[in-house]
Design a protein around this nucleic acid. Sequence first.
DNA 1: TTAGGGTTAG
Length: 785
Amino acid sequence: MATAFLPSFCNNSGNISPQRLLDPQPHLLSASNDLKTKPPSKLNKASVARTLLSYIDSGRMEGALSLFETTKKPDTFLWNLMIRGYANSEFYQKAMDFYHRMQAAGMRADNFTFPFVIKSCIALSSFDEGLKVHGRLFKVGLDSDLFICNSLIGMYSKFGLVEDAERVFDEMPIRDIVSWNSMIDGYVLNGEGWRSLICFREMQEASGLQHDRYGVMSALAACSLEMSANQGKEIHCHVIRHGLESDIKVQTSLLDMYCKCGKVFYAERLFQTMNQRNVVTWNALIGGYALNNQPHKAFACIVEMQADSIGPDAVTMVNLLPACQVRGISHGKAIHGLSIRKSFLPHLVLETALIDMYAKCGELGSAEWLFDQMTEKSLVSWNAMIAAYVQNGRNMKALEVFLNLCNRNLEPDLFTISSIMPAYAELASLQYGKQIHSYVLKSKYGSNTLVLNCIIYMYARCGDLKTSREVFDRMVCKDIVSWNTIIIGYGYHGHGKIALDLFSDMKSKGIQPNESTFVSVLTACSLSGLVDEGWLNFNAMQQEYNISPQIEHYGCMVDLLGRTGDLKEAVDFIERMPLVPTARIWGSLLTASRNKNDIEMAEFAAEKIFALEHDNTGCYVLLSSMYADAGRWSDVERVKSLMKEEGVQKTTARSLLELDGKTCTFINGDMSHDQSNITHEVSDILSKGIGETANDSDFVFNPVEVGAKKASLPKRHSVRLAVVFGLISTTVGSPILVKKNVRICNDCHHAIKLISRYSKREIIIGDTRIYHHFTDGFCCCGDYW
DNA sequence: TTAGGGTTAG
């Protein structure tokens, strides 16, 4: 083997010799013959440039720096080389430092400098720095340079400011194919598929330029965004017409597009015709199978690709993970194990995908563990962890992570906001809700439709329907979700008629209702007892809108039938349903049986529920309370024993009242507050004031519990204590809002109706199902909940 | 010496 071409520090086999590895900074002397003979200061400019370039091209930035630092009065070209070297070696902060040093040294940055500076700003996510750079370009008269403008389009697009990218593009005196491709891709990056495709078309019409592989690949991504296989097919034809079909990157983009548009068959056919495949191609196909609910095929690819002598990589694992949501946690764990064995971990994207998988499979502990041990976390990882907590009902924990994220100089994005908003809604805390609303208004997502929809829902869930409506009314771009949300908001508050008026408004504005709209409408009808309107809409959804009722719609109809009191009709309806009844359906029958005081039917419904959910706490509690009402104490004891056997514990009833930014929590018989004594005294006075007799409020049905369970007296129930505390702590005439974690009992519901009349106050109680608005002795629920 | 996106997480 000839050795003449080997560097001096390599042995004959081409390996680096151990001696050279021990030699400090050997590369300094191997870069240029000039350096062996002359000290750097004596080198002429051309030699320095040549040597510096050789260091930079081989990624040896330390050597480049040493040479640069010893060069007297480096010119713009040398400064540019250093900035380029750092930017291309991904030392972006150092590139920026050099740019600033260059300015401090009085050197003028030129058209070659700025593309690297802009690239560094993008990589560092330095939006403010990027803006300063753009400002500087105007001062130095480089704001129209082709290369710089192309870089700026990329910068604004990547910072999510596609309108600013457009402005740069529109004002360019000359555009080339990179300008057009950058704009086409900029729209894709910002989720604007159609605008990207329009731009793609305009390029040929306006400029006469021919699309290259880059433009085609971006346009295919735009088709995926819009799920438009037809547009994708047109681009496929263009690819064939212009001889791009043998390009593996274009082929992979086509395959990916077909998968994302749900056309797996086309993707498979394309895959079969490909004369070369690599791991990226396989990954696209695996991701396509996982995405299109074909987990078996996704997993089968792992074996097939190995037969093709192609091994999986970290992206293969990422693409396989969604298939685990169908095939179960054991497959997810297997992928995690394989990733460890193949040394794919640590890997930022893969770890984040694993967090998501564990959370969706209900293994929150594993998700938490993975998140905690990650050495590097992106905003996406934080968002995944927030979503993991919210999905698993750990709302306070989600809030903790969100606040932690905000304290780490990470700027929440649309995903962060839309992930955390449901946690605020579920916590139903108006003070927290107002805080997040104020935060969102100050952020750049203050007018985003997705975020505003979450805010409408949050206010409605927190009991503040007025603000919910104000946010809705002020929205500039209302979508179908905005309408569905405000309709169900009015439904939750028992304003069925207003909900139906809104539904009419929506239709009159030409917005086509969808499945969720009818869930909102039917929920509103059922919670307000609008039986005729409920049936009318249930029939209309099928006949006028061709929407097949789903289990949620049937659930609302069972609620409505329950209200009419015809339990037999309700059972017939359930049995005639084309879908398998869920525990929620039988729960509606149970509620109806309770309201009709039909123990036999309640037992029937409970039996069905326990067959599906043996640990349904609400069912045990409701059944037990019915037995107690009927004086069937042995059955009460039997239910208690059953609960014990199943390990089911009765949820501790809690009622929350927010006062002056503080949340006051009450449990039954609560004596833990500073003002507990006066609260109990006022409760007694009110009890007498509304005409409650000993039988109404002091009598406990179960003689076994008399004496020891003074706290179970209705007038000592958490909700009564919260209401009384609200009455004595707030301005006369102002409404009182209390939230309860379990359903309000009959006694309290009756008493609060009377208290609202006696105290001339509006009292709003939100329980797990509905907001009861008590005014002048009446409740909006019509005494059915 | 200057601009660029085949598959990948929320």
